[in-house]
């Protein structure tokens, strides 16, 4: 179908190209705009309840998605024992609800706090709504179409692989119910929005802090490089 081609072939290719190209451009040429735009200084009570649950819930679930995509066999192996399957599904659902509560508080905070409104851009709202849809549809799918952790691996891993191989196999996702399709399309839109929004802070998570030296000193007078330069120029 034409719609499936648009949403599951054209949209993801555009979205990921944008994310990569604009993301790199922005990090190099507009580094000042790359920030997580914290508003904790202005409001902290609602942020405490919203931000922590949202981030920890969502990050874990995202990593789980990524894991299932890359190592589907191990997930299927784990799920081969029913009790383990229930455990996994329940944990996933609980984390989803945790993140959902978080995003609801964050949305409420955006609209109820005058000071937060003062720093809210339209893009902030777009991001919050997209994330809200994503988590809501995710929770609904987890409860309506069991057991996601198993069927996800047999449908989406091959689909993603076919996309990577530039031989998209849209037949895999075409028969899915509209709710699942919405979840996926919404994700692609988020990917497209990613480089233009505060979402870009995801890729600046400072792992280097674990090993960098405590203190950083920088010479302004780069005597050595200056000498190198002048000898290279034959001066």
């Amino acid at each position: 179908m034409i719609w499936d081609t648009i949403f599951f072939i054209i949209l993801p290719y555009i979205a990921f190209s944008l994310a990569i190209a604009v993301g790199i451009y922005r990090s190099i040429y507009r580094p000042f705009t790359v920030t997580s735009l914290s508003s904790q200084l202005l409001e902290r009570k609602k942020l405490y309840w919203g931000s922590i649950s949202f981030h920890y819930g969502l990050v874990t679930i995202l990593l789980a998605h990524l894991y299932a995509l890359t190592l589907p066999k191990s997930v299927l192996w784990w799920n081969s024992v029913p009790i383990r399957l229930y455990l996994l599904e329940l944990t996933g659902l609980a984390l989803g609800i945790f993140a959902f509560v978080g995003i609801c508080i964050l949305l409420w905070r955006r609209f109820s706090e005058k000071r937060v409104q003062a720093v809210t851009t339209p893009m902030d709202i777009v991001v919050l709504v997209l994330v809200f849809i994503s988590i809501l549809t995710g929770i609904l799918i987890a409860s309506l179409y069991r057991f996601g952790s198993s069927w996800f691996t047999v449908i989406f891993t091959p689909y993603i692989l076919s996309m990577f191989a530039f031989k998209p196999n849209v037949g895999l996702v075409a028969p899915l119910p509209w709710l699942i399709k919405l979840h996926v399309i919404n994700f692609f839109i988020m990917v497209a929005v990613f480089p233009f929004s505060r979402l870009i802070h995801i890729f600046t998570y400072p792992f280097q802090y674990l090993y960098r030296p405590w203190q950083i000193v920088i010479w302004n007078r780069k005597v050595k490089s200056a000498k190198k330069l002048s000898s290279a120029q034959g001066k």
């Binding site: 400072p206 802090y209 950083i216 000193v217 920088i218």
Partner: peptide
């Protein structure tokens, strides 16, 4: 965490 702050040596 980002290592954005630094001390000028000179």
């Amino acid at each position: 965490p980002s290592g954005a702050i630094y001390k000028r040596v000179e």
